[in-house]
């Protein structure tokens, strides 16, 4: 089998892979930052006292979580232009990843906030701390410890999901595999190389995740 596996062609396509690797990195990086922002805001809205605000966030979170990402990408890519809203492929792609992952992150953050026992919040209220002071000093420092690992896990999912952007002709890692396959008819070489690059990103994020776990989470034995 190895005799037929063509390493030379992989080397030949390396410049394309590096270009696409960096595209995957910045598309998912942008999506990750966007998703954290959207997720935080959506979570704050979901927990709002106002029923309307909470409902809007609920509809967003539920509709994203109940539909496939590919359908969402197609909607943004084909659907929105037909309604007269046009963006470039990259912007559409980042937009789709942000909105998709943001909904999951909103739920992760909500779980983290709600894991703080209500008694502590009452203790904060009783001592005169404002809503923002309670968030800042009591809830968020503890919620961060609970949510950072699931959030990084969601980040890894986001990177892998970015492969779907190849279907709206964005040049990213999976697209590079498709190009090698279609130009040279070498799918094994093409997609194994693609997979290897995802593996690199995965290990970087996983390494970061274990570092965080050791360093940032609670100083005390819990």
């Amino acid at each position: 089998m190895l005799e037929t596996f063509n390493f030379r062609v992989i080397l030949e396509y390396m410049p394309l892979y590096f270009k696409c690797f960096s595209a995957t990195l910045w598309l998912s990086g942008a999506g990750l930052i966007g998703a954290l922002l959207v997720g935080t805001v959506a979570c704050a809205m979901r927990l709002s006292q106002s029923r309307i605000v909470s409902l809007i966030a609920g509809v967003y979170i539920e509709s994203i979580r109940s539909t496939p990402l590919l359908a969402q990408i197609y909607f943004f890519y084909f659907g929105l232009p037909s309604l007269g809203i046009m963006f470039s492929e990259e912007v559409t792609g980042i937009f789709a990843l942000t909105l998709n992952s943001g909904a999951y992150m909103a739920e992760i953050i909500r779980a983290g906030i709600q894991s703080i026992p209500h008694g502590q919040i009452e203790a904060g209220i009783a001592s005169g701390l404002s809503y923002f002071q309670r968030m800042r000093y009591i809830i968020l420092p503890q919620a961060l410890g609970v949510t950072i690992l699931p959030l990084l896990g969601q980040g890894i999912v986001l990177v892998k999901d970015s492969s779907l952007l190849s279907l709206i002709s964005i040049m990213e890692l999976t697209r590079a595999g498709q190009i090698l396959t279609s130009e040279r008819f070498m799918p094994a070489e093409g997609f194994l190389t693609t997979a290897a690059f995802y593996l690199i990103i995965y290990y970087i994020l996983k390494g970061f995740s274990s570092w965080v776990q050791k360093r940032l989470i609670f100083r005390e034995a819990y």
């Binding site: 026992p117 502590q120 009452e122 009591i138 503890q142 410890g145 609670f218 100083r219 005390e220």
Partner: peptide
């Protein structure tokens, strides 16, 4: 009753 100290 449950003290409600901040554990962190």
């Amino acid at each position: 009753q449950q003290f409600n100290l901040y554990p962190h």
